[in-house]
Design a protein around this nucleic acid. Structure first.
Length: 878
RNA sequence: GGGCGCGUAGCUCAGCGGGAGAGCACUCGGCUUACACCCGAGCGGUCGCAGGUUCGAUCCCUGCCGCGCCCACCA
């Protein structure tokens, strides 16, 4: 036996292809230019734009998951003859980078403020270069077939031009404005956050009721943020609330501060909640801000940008907001003004999603906004009209609820890392917005703030293709084909790309399909988190089980829009699968299999059956991948390979290879099926399949091999032959039943048993005598044959094969009785069920004829089984 | 409060109108010349509960119980 594939079992206990082999393959693919797209070719385009991770310095499992799914799509399209372009843009993720760099600086004993703006930015570039290189290497290792030559960074020159162009256009169209609004303020970042960056979470707080005013003027209000009372400028009640009509319009004294504040009537107040009276802090609460606007109240800011009390003229100035909460409460208590306290009081508080997850502070401040109305409307309409498809469709309502109710988008950030807002202020209050190449008049000062990360990220589908230049890439690859991302990022990124794409590209969608995947979870379906310690490192999996196994395992749990639970066991199973395929191919090659051989003109049933299944599976996998059903496609390949090809065809092939008249045909079929299988598997497990494909075919690379077709002259496999399929199914049943008998009779696996097969020809299985003998270790009966046991197997078409065995000795009657007893019970259950149905006149009258016929057939078979098994039981010695 | 979804074998999940499935785990037997990362056989489920539609419901409808996620300015 000559192996053309090495047996790696001995030297590589963990995985088939060591990292160096994978790396060498990857280099070869890159050098051969397989990953390079050509905008001038006439091949159809397939383009995916994606942000690689570039923040933590290590490939996160979520990114490994997403990249695997994208690469599967891209590799399949490449094999189909598309010009594939997987364009990596580099995310600058300003807030996260800012937070991480600040932390790094803190560890070095310095700070952003000490460094100054220019030095901070320089330090950030260094930091990103350090981590960026590491992460790119890890992504290449994952096998991503990315065109790295077109890598774009969102803060490079081209990106800056795109951002400036976009900002200027929106500004000139009146879609960007500056206003003083209630914003989500992060005291830690000292920056504003957009609505989507705020995560509401239930926390145990306190609800404190306190009395404002005295005597007749007394009115009780409640709050969860006592410290904000320092900024109160009114108390509001419902206009129809008779309890308070006498107070409306009067002024009462604000405790601790001593300011006189009015009692106002406002529809917003719910008279049924609490006392029906609300304290109003217009500068630190959105509702209060609206009330303040309606009643022209002053709006003093009493919490500064660092989260400390300020400008109240009280002893609380300079106190942290949480310290002040306690201090103010106790001061009020000292005055006897605390009426009630509820603690703990569960309520929802907004937290900064990035950074340290601290509670955000609503705060009135001057910021830049994108007027989102017309943009969001277009984004909704694009999906409504079917121009853009959301997959899976169940997530569409989420999309609509978001884009149809979007608030204006706050785009300014008080950070130093990011695109700076291109607006300059003149000495006399002039405001100019400068586009690319434009210079502000001398003496003007640029706005200090930078843009939200998602402003530049929203431009990716076209900025990475060269926009605003009219490049060949842009002409060919826009709109891009599909956006693959997690549902968690639908609003952050996808919505922004959609709005900006439709706006900048004159109504042309940025992508045809939004394919949403779920989040990777641990093996128990729990969310992965660093604090719980259930995170997994894809690099560790690649070390332990190999890249292909890691990719296969990830794909195998990827159902659209659904979370993907995965653990070591899944990856080990995927590794085992690769091993199985590897060994099957070794066996085939050692026996001279080759796809170059002509398929046999007189195929056996097994040949016809496996070739028919090959075509079916190809059709299935192709359709499933087209529909982003990665898990099902992978599952189909797994079961075809293991349960059908390896467990049955390979075993049936052994006697065929031993017989001269079928040997060549078997070699051809084996070669053909493995060739197709390896090509179908390549998008999922690229490295393993490259090795196998080259060994099988001697061709240059599976990366550029044709994707298997099921139609036309190059269709793989053969059309399904029902006759062959039935005969193989019968053969399998026969073999399984005899094996079951052997196991239960404790006939040693290795021992050959003489057997007489009756009715084999009548059942159409005459040709399979040799296979049967080989697979269940039967010998031809000889002169001294003495039947000691009989196994009867009911097959299709009312055929029964009787197997008389000479087990040379008494059989275990009890075991045989138990086996037949189980069969009898099953048959009786079947008979009972079918008779119940057939006994129902309504069923016979109303059910479709084929269904009734099917039940009749099953009833007859069950009845025959019972008779046969009963007779067999009776014949057993007592 | 609104929206989406989920409760199926010990665990994680497919199936979604006519005979209960997979992977892992478990039991028993095997180093059978591709593979012990393996082979063979097996155990294991009133398909959350209650109604309804239907000849027929794990599958469709309604309600309930339990759970998850997203959105939402109620002090």
């Amino acid at each position: 036996m000559t192996d053309t594939l090495p047996t790696r079992m001995a030297d590589l206990p963990a995985q088939w292809l060591p990292g160096e082999v994978e790396a060498a393959m990857y280099e070869r693919w890159v050098a051969a230019g397989y990953f390079t797209a050509d905008a001038t070719s006439d091949k159809p385009p397939f383009c995916i734009v994606i942000p690689p991770p570039n923040v933590t310095g290590s490939l996160h499992i979520g990114h490994a998951f997403e990249h695997t799914l994208i690469d599967i799509l891209v590799r399949r399209r490449r094999m189909q003859g598309y010009d594939t372009l997987w364009l990596p843009g580099m995310d600058h993720a300003s807030i996260a980078v800012h937070a991480l760099v600040e932390r790094a600086l803190e560890a070095e004993g310095t700070s952003r403020r000490e460094l100054g703006r220019a030095a901070f930015i320089e330090r950030t570039w260094e930091w990103k270069a350090e981590y960026g290189g590491a992460i790119l290497a890890q992504m290449r290792r994952l096998g991503d077939s990315v065109d790295w030559t077109r890598e774009r960074f969102t803060m490079d020159e081209g990106s800056n031009r795109a951002v400036l162009t976009m900002f200027k256009r929106l500004y000139d169209d009146g879609l960007i404005y500056r206003a003083e609004r209630m914003v989500n303020w992060s005291p830690e970042m000292r920056s504003v956050l957009s609505d989507v960056e705020v995560e509401h979470k239930e926390v145990d707080g306190e609800l404190v009721s306190m009395r404002y005013g005295d005597g007749e003027d007394a009115i009780v209000v409640a709050t969860t943020r006592v410290e904000t009372m320092l900024g109160d400028t009114a108390v509001a009640v419902h206009p129809d609330d008779e309890r308070y009509t006498h107070l409306v319009g009067r002024e009462i004294e604000l405790p601790l501060v001593g300011r006189r504040i009015p009692v106002v009537a406002d529809e917003h107040v719910d008279p049924a909640f609490g006392t029906g009276a609300v304290k109003v802090t217009p500068a630190h609460d959105l509702n209060d801000f609206e009330i303040g606007r309606r009643h022209h109240l002053p709006m003093p800011t009493v919490i500064d940008e660092t989260g400390h009390i300020a400008n109240t003229g009280t002893e609380f100035d300079g106190m942290d907001r949480f310290e002040a909460r306690v201090a103010v409460r106790e001061a009020l208590r000292a005055q006897g003004r605390i009426v009630a306290e509820k603690r703990p009081y569960r309520h929802s508080v907004g937290h900064a999603q990035r950074g340290k997850f601290e509670p955000i502070e609503p705060r009135l401040s001057l910021q830049w906004f994108v007027k989102v109305g017309p943009l969001a409307k277009a984004a909704g309409d694009a999906v409504r009209s079917g121009d853009v498809v959301v997959n899976p469709k169940e997530l569409e309502p989420r999309w609509f609820s978001w884009v149809d109710n979007m608030h204006d988008w706050c785009i300014s950030r008080q950070l130093w890392w990011g695109h700076r807002i291109p607006v300059w202020y003149g000495p006399n209050g002039e405001v100019v917005c400068c586009g690319p190449g434009e210079q502000p008049p001398a003496g003007y000062a640029q706005d200090e703030d930078v843009l939200d990360t998602w402003f530049s990220s929203g431009l990716w589908p076209f900025s990475t293709l060269g926009w605003p230049e009219q490049t060949p890439d842009l002409a060919k690859f826009y709109p891009t084909s599909v956006l693959v991302t997690g549902y968690d990022i639908l609003f952050f990124w996808v919505a922004r790309m959609m709005m900006f794409g439709l706006y900048a590209m004159h109504g042309v969608r940025p992508f045809d399909t939004i394919a949403l995947h779920g989040m990777v979870r641990d093996q128990h379906g729990k969310k992965m988190s660093k604090t719980v310690g259930n995170t997994v490192d894809p690099n560790l999996w690649m070390d332990t089980y190999g890249t292909d196994a890691t990719r296969f395992a990830l794909a195998r749990v990827a159902n659209p829009g659904t979370d993907a639970p995965i653990g070591d066991d899944n990856v080990a199973a995927a590794r085992n699968f690769g091993t199985k395929l590897w060994n099957a191919t070794r066996f085939a090659l050692a026996n001279g299999a080759s796809p170059a051989l002509p398929l046999p003109s007189a195929p056996t049933d097994a040949d016809t059956w496996i070739l028919g299944r090959m075509r079916e599976v190809t059709e299935q996998v192709d359709a499933l991948l087209e529909d982003f059903q990665f898990a099902k496609a992978t599952e189909a390949l797994y079961h075809f390979t293991w349960d059908e090809l390896c467990d049955w065809y390979l075993e049936l092939a052994k006697p065929q290879l031993a017989a001269a008249e079928t040997a060549d045909g078997t070699r051809a079929v084996l070669g053909h099926v493995l060739d197709v299988l390896v090509r179908l598997l390549h998008p999922v497990s690229p490295f393993l399949t490259e090795a196998l494909y080259q060994a099988l075919t001697g061709a240059e690379s599976v990366v550029i091999a044709p994707w298997p077709l099921t139609k036309g002259p190059d269709a793989v496999g053969v059309p399904v032959d029902a006759g062959a399929a039935t005969r193989i199914a019968d053969l399998q049943k026969l073999i399984t039943d005899i094996r079951r008998f052997r196991t239960e009779q404790r006939v040693p696996d290795r021992r050959r048993v003489a057997a007489r097969l009756i009715g084999l020809d009548e059942a159409g299985l005459g040709a399979h005598r040799a296979a049967l003998a080989a697979l269940v270790r039967l010998d031809e009966p000889e002169a001294q044959f003495a039947r000691t046991a009989t196994v009867e197997v009911a097959l299709s078409g009312a055929h029964t094969v009787v197997v008389e065995l000479d087990t040379s000795g008494a059989i275990d009657v009890a075991a045989e009785r138990a086996r037949l007893g189980r069969d009898l019970a099953a048959a009786r259950k079947e008979l009972e069920q079918t008779e119940r149905k057939l006994g129902n006149p309504a069923f016979v009258a109303k059910a479709p004829v084929p269904v009734v016929e099917d039940i009749r057939g099953r009833q007859a078979a069950a009845a025959a089984d019972i008779e046969r098994i009963t007779a067999r039981l009776d014949a057993l010695p007592a």
